[in-house]
Amino acid sequence: MIGTSHELCTMPLPDHHRDMEDYGKGVARWCPGCGGHSILAAVQRVCKDMQYPPEKTVCVSGIGCSSRFPHYMGTYGFHGLHGRAFPVACGVKFRRPDLNVFVITGDGDCCSIGAGHWVHAIRYNMKMVALLFDNGIYGLTKKQTSPTSPLGTHSNTHPGGSVLPPINPLQTTLGFANVSFVAQTTDWNPAHLYATIRKAADHPGLAFVRIVQRCPVFMRDLYGDIASNPDELIYLSHEKGINVKPGVAKTFKNVLAHDPTNIHKAREYAEITDGIPIGLFYQNIENSRYDDYGAYNMGMSNKVKQNAMEDMLDQYTIRNSIT
């Protein structure tokens, strides 16, 4: 790269420049037309652009179609339990500040069975990128109503149409304590998708990204029209926001200026139902991070530990037991 060998250079050099292939593995087994494919490509590209060492990168997921994601990455992966991606990811990161962590979760995984962990992961605010693949349905288990299914969705559990209003993941996340980064993008706008994940990767805390995702098999109608019509997207624009190339930006007819430091406006815009707002809703880089707390006191030597243990035992030791 600089034209010198490792031995000669006093500056640490990466082993080699990594390209897209370094981040891929196998063939993704999602349905044709599934939004997962483009999200996978975007994450791989971000890893490449960040030059994340694959061995220092961990993708943690729950269970669902979306949660198969780690199997298609050339990094370390953890495909765990339904709803439990966040606790595992937080455990991975807590004492390993050197690892780059991605969390991949579905709308059922995150907003239903794992909702408790969702609240707390946001509050822990450890540095990681959390991608909510929101297709508004349970995909893997074949079309049951999800907490984000629009009211009236016909599914196998609600053949007559779902009866409750959906959870809005943006609005919800923006209500959690210590929230520090909330963005929304779609699987069908690769430039914006990439820019969003790229921005998330830079965020010093938990970056929560809701990706509006198409499920061509079970939810053909949900985003079918929208995806072919860029006018349905509302582009949140701000210098501190998610910025795509001017050429791409020009394609958005609906633009809304939004300062992502303003949480009140963020909450207001999260409620927009007339079109899909995409961009950075909120960012705060000052929030406390639980991984700072977790990384405390690492790397203590065995000798120090041993002495500390002996001191502790002293407190329980019976002195001059026979006088």
């Binding site: 953890f78 966040f86 595992v88 707390h120």
Partner: peptide
């Protein structure tokens, strides 16, 4: 001795965190 206690949000998270 260079360690830490994590009080998780529930027992499921506690073991999940430990497993991670």
């Amino acid at each position: 001795v260079g360690g830490i206690v994590h009080q998780a949000e529930d027992e499921i998270a506690a073991i999940g965190f430990a497993i991670g």
